[in-house]
């Protein structure tokens, strides 16, 4: 579903059901817009371009863009 800016929605499942807080997405994000706070991952909606690199880097499939 497009967000207000017409961007796709990025969802990081970081409640612990999938996410293992490994930081792979944080380290690969070319715009440095993902932040890992021990057991909470946040990302900057305004900076993210939905390049989907983090989706590939995540070893457990906890990130969805759609």
């Amino acid at each position: 579903m497009p967000s207000q800016q017409g961007k796709k929605t990025l969802h990081i499942e970081s409640s612990g059901q999938l996410c293992i807080y490994c930081g792979a997405c944080v380290g690969i994000c070319p715009l440095n817009c993902i932040y890992l706070d021990e057991t909470r991952i946040t990302f900057d909606e305004r900076i993210c371009t939905r390049c989907e690199i983090c989706v590939k880097a995540c070893p457990v499939g906890a990130i969805e863009i759609g």
């Binding site: 690199i53 590939k56 880097a57 995540c58 070893p59 457990v60 499939g61 990130i63 969805e64």
Partner: peptide
């Protein structure tokens, strides 16, 4: 290698 990953959770 991330450049060879095609689908989510492929490492797993």
């Amino acid at each position: 290698q991330v450049s060879q990953i095609r689908n989510p959770a492929e490492a797993r």
